[in-house]
Each structure stands twice: as structure tokens, then as C-alpha cells.
Write a protein that binds this DNA or RNA. Structure first.
Lengths: 145, 145
DNA sequence: TAACTTTGCATCGTGAACGATATAAATCAA
DNA sequence: TTGATTTATATCGTTCACGATGCAAAGTTA
């Protein structure tokens, strides 16, 4: 039995599981809004800056168009965004919030604090989480190459 | 603009992205073996202990049967495992490694070290990764409830 | 032992991820 | 300006995740 092949020694499994469980924690808050977790990420981007080409969204999410295009098509179908053809470069699709997509920001603004309250008084501490965020950032930076 | 709704302030997005990128780092090593990342996790479990009911696998992976059953069916189709009916409790399906699935352990035993070499000399350090693993564990423990 | 509940697993539908491939517009080179 | 290449996005097929539902075996209760 190779120790390095034990499930509990795998960092990847911890990341995979923590990511899934955190997403699950968000789910009850997304359900009344009728959105999913990746759709929420797209909305976060558009709430920061509207009218972006698909390429800006793919690069910020570090996903490819084969994931993002169908995602945006579903969001368009749900009336959250529009996808208009670029005027300067007509290959581009400019993604814009609909009034409904914009208004959803108000309904979503308390979700992060609801989530962080989940581990009020429980482990891990805010300090640990902050340190982990830094480590994740450098890990992402290294792996992005 | 609500600060708490900025993409870069989202822990969830870091976890989600790091998890995806780490899985991507494994992919080249899985490809010659013809397996996927979740299939690798199942193999890790079976290499530790063979002949397990589906429920043991779901609980260790913290996944439900609606994810694991199709996964096991594909692995059976690929000749990595067998799924026999339990003798004591005939509702159970006992998952066992085939010779091929067992032999794959030898081919996989160097994958973890290949992955960890990815950030030799780069950030994050081994200490940071170790600290993060601890934080992830407590986060998983808290969210599991 | 008959009716009820629980347990273990399977099936179905939907929405991601992602490799591979396609297409049209833009850009570059000859 | 024509032909070649690159860029921006889309499509397709496969595998995961996961909510909802189904079903038969096991356990429980009356």
C-alpha cells in the first residue's frame, strides 16, 4: 500500500470536496432566484462591469467558451442577459444585463454574509480562511501557466 | 457596487477555480490510463480496501449514489471493477477491483509526486499547503452537517 | 404474517466542464 | 487584392454533480 495513494493524503480531494460543499451551501440561496452557482459568477462579473464580450467573461472565470457559451445561452433564455453582436468586431458577442439580471443584485447582496455566518463560532476561523485565500491565490497563479 | 459581491472577494470562486485547475493538472497523467479524476478517487479507495459496497464509496467521497452508480457502471464497462450482488444483504452491490484495476496502482503510484513537483520552487510552499489542508479539513467537517 | 417503513441502489433530467472540431470575421502576407 | 492565418465564438459528445423519483430487499410493527 502506497501512502501517497491514500485518499486522505490527497490535497486534490480536499479541494474538490470543499468546493462542492461550499457550492452546496450556496444552493438554497440560489434556488429562489432560479440561478446556479456558475450563473451567479457570471452575474458577479456583470454587476461589476456590464456589456462585456464573451472573452472577458471566459478569462475572468478561467473557463473556455465551450463551457461559457452554453451557460450564457441558458441565462439569455432565462431573461437574465442579452447577447448582442459587437459593432466594432462583429465576431464578438456583447453580454449585457437585462433589467431582471440587474435587479437580481439587490436580492443577492446578502448571500455572502449569510454564507460566512455558517462558520460563526465554528472552525475554521476568519484568520485561517484569510490565510487559505492567499494560498489558493498563489496556487491558482502557479497552475494557470 | 457591493464589495461583498466582487468576484475577487469570493472564497467560493477561489476554491472552485483551484479545484478545477488541480484536476486539470492531473488530467495528462490520467489520459494514458484511460481514467478520469473521479474514477481515480474510486480506485484510491479500492486500493486501500477492496470489495466495498456502494454505500462505503459514496460516504467516503461524500457523493450520492446518483453520481456514484453511473460512475461505477462506466468503470465496470472499462473493465476496472466488477459489481456483484451482496450475499448477506442482496440490496448491496459489492464493488471489487479486476486484475486490470489492481494493476493500475503500479502505474499510478508516481502521479502524486509528479503533481507535487509542479510547485517545486514556486508558491505556495509546502508549509502553506499543509496549513491549507488543515483548514480545508475543518471547513469540510463544518459543512458536512 | 400482513402492512408499513427504511435502506441500498438505480434511473432520469438538467446543467455544468472540457476535449475536439467547426465557422465566420478579422488580420496578415505575398 | 488574394490567399493564409489568427481570433472570437459556437457546436458536439462524454463524464460528472445533483435534485427528484422509483423499486426491491430488509427491517419493524401491529
Amino acid at each position: 500500500m502506497y501512502d501517497q495513494l491514500k485518499l486522505e493524503n490527497q490535497l486534490c480531494f480536499r479541494l474538490y470536496t470543499a468546493s462542492r460543499l461550499v457550492t452546496q451551501a450556496y444552493r438554497p440561496y440560489f434556488e429562489p432566484l432560479g440561478i446556479t452557482y456558475p450563473q451567479y459568477l457570471v452575474l458577479l462579473i456583470l454587476w461589476e462591469q456590464d456589456n462585456l464580450p464573451v472573452s472577458d467573461i471566459t478569462s475572468r472565470l478561467m473557463l473556455d467558451t465551450n463551457t461559457v457559451t452554453p451557460l450564457l445561452q441558458r441565462m439569455e433564455r432565462e431573461g437574465l442577459i442579452t447577447r448582442t453582436r459587437g459593432t466594432v468586431d462583429s465576431r464578438q458577442r456583447i453580454v449585457s444585463l437585462t433589467p431582471r439580471g440587474l435587479a437580481m443584485q439587490e436580492q443577492a447582496k446578502d448571500i455572502p454574509s449569510c454564507i460566512s455566518r455558517k462558520w460563526d463560532g465554528k472552525a475554521p476561523s476568519v484568520e485561517e480562511i484569510f490565510a487559505m485565500a492567499k494560498t489558493l491565490d498563489s496556487m491558482i497563479e502557479t497552475l494557470k501557466q
